[in-house]
Amino acid sequence: MKRGDIDTSVWVGGSITVFAVLFAILGFFWQPFDPLMIDLTSRFADPSLAHPLGKDGFGRDMLSRLMAGAWKSLTMGFGATFLALSIGVPVALFAGYMRGWVDQLIMRVVDVFLSIPSLVFALIIIVSLGTSHMNALIALGIATSPRFVRIIRTIVMDTMAHDYVTAARARGETALFIQYREVLPNIWPPIIIEGSINVGFALMAGAALSYLGLGTQPPAADWGVLVRDGQQAINQSIWPLLGPAITISIAIVGFNLLGEGLRDQIARTKVHEHG
């Protein structure tokens, strides 16, 4: 595909996403200063050449904390989405393949889960798991999976109507073979698109859980913890709030642009194919 064929939104969103991922990977291995190093002589230091984002109330370098936090926040976004897909895709394949009362039963259960707001659902799961970065990730993954079941099941049902699936059935292939060898390979594009849209949401919701004190636990910090610490310090300095606030917003703009841009582009390509 020529570069001219790619939407601006996909291009911009993709660049921001790649940059955010590189930033997080770099932050996992290296930060300019130790993000936990306390220096009470330089509390709330304004931005300077050595500390471009200033320092927080413990004199910790904000850029270093932001870089270490990027890894925590992005693993939350990608990890929760990966878990949601690992639950959602098999259930959707099964329901879409079986149809009939099995499908109806699964969808009624999905409807019940969907009638609990996902952040509240995540909170309920956290009650039984306890508060930590990993548990917030698991809770978000479970809480967002019903939405995937509903979306992907519809796609599975459309795919099941194709001739190659009918042919596989006529050959006497097993249910598992049809679900994972015939249907799944053909529905990757929509799965990846829905997944990438979810990464932005999961990143945001994961940081919100940490903001509430129910995700990543101090002294470790993801972007949600940093925003909360920043808010508590606004009477002394706005820098500890501004750095993480701007970073997380840009990252989410990037993920949304990429996901929705890809979705629009595929929708347009389909229109072209059909007429």
């Binding site: 945001m204 949600g224 925003v227 997380i248």
Partner: peptide, 13 residues
């Protein structure tokens, strides 16, 4: 794209 828990503190500031 701006999360609620980011927009809120910014409004306060």
């Amino acid at each position: 794209s701006i999360p609620d828990f980011v927009f809120g503190p910014l409004l306060i500031v």
